[in-house]
């Protein structure tokens, strides 16, 4: 795998709120690496993710370049950027089954969808959960389904918005290991925003402090 071709590059990115500078980031994240952005609430961590993913509110203004390999991400609509999101809430669609949620993530033209879904569920210890209603799953199970939904969509980079903050301590350890392991295995560059030091340590990558 060519590192430079798949890296996530933030070049002189700065975001302003009503003319007031909010943050400035200049960094490159290699495939399989996790860049952690730390800062208190209100420091604009989540705004940075919204900007990269294509959901920046019109009250903010932003400058700079965001590239995935050679692709200029900012010129693409959100759904074509190939940037996957993981939030602190698993946000499994309640009107779809577990299998339906995973199928929602699969690219339109992928082959053997059912087999891929079964395999993904098996990987996270949820084999046979396809027909279950997401509401009947525990918090940890939901988080694992959300992760697999993200990976099945074959993103080129992943943004993590405090993904472990709502889990209890034991589960948090387990999910950190699972998420970072899977991301490394898939060779995806990832950006993690958090205010938890332990998240940053577990991610094992460089750290940027905001605010």
């Amino acid at each position: 795998m060519n590192n430079a071709a798949n890296a996530l590059t933030l070049e002189q990115v700065s975001i302003h709120l009503a003319g007031r500078p909010l943050l400035h980031v200049d960094a490159t994240v290699a495939p399989g690496d996790v860049l952690t952005v730390m800062g208190p609430s209100g420091s604009g961590k989540s705004t940075l993710l919204a900007f990269i993913a294509g959901f920046l509110q019109s009250t903010f203004t932003a400058q700079g370049q965001v590239r995935l390999g050679d692709t200029d991400v900012l010129s693409l609509p959100a759904e074509q950027r190939g940037v996957g999101l993981l939030f602190q809430d698993p946000l499994l669609f309640p009107h779809l089954s577990v299998g339906g949620n995973l199928r929602f993530g699969l690219p339109h033209r992928s082959s053997q969808k059912s087999a891929q879904i079964a395999k993904a569920l098996e990987q996270v210890g949820l084999a046979g959960f396809e027909a279950r209603d997401p509401a009947t799953l525990s918090g940890g199970q939901q988080a694992r389904v959300a992760l697999m939904r993200l990976l099945l969509s074959q993103p080129r980079a992943v943004l993590l918005d405090e993904p472990f903050s709502k889990l209890d301590t034991a589960l948090r350890q387990e999910m950190r290991a699972l998420v970072f392991g899977q991301l490394r295995e898939a060779g995806l560059p990832a950006l993690l925003v958090t205010h938890d030091e332990a998240d940053a340590t577990a991610a094992g990558g460089p750290i940027i402090a905001l605010g």
Partner: peptide, 27 residues
């Protein structure tokens, strides 16, 4: 309605128009 539902849908490669039919309206 939490905007993150639509962020998730779009980040999974679904266009805005389809996310409206497949996520917003069902929710």
């Amino acid at each position: 309605l939490d905007p993150r539902w639509l962020y998730i849908a779009q980040s999974l490669g679904v266009s805005r128009r389809r996310a409206f039919w497949r996520v917003r309206l069902p929710l």
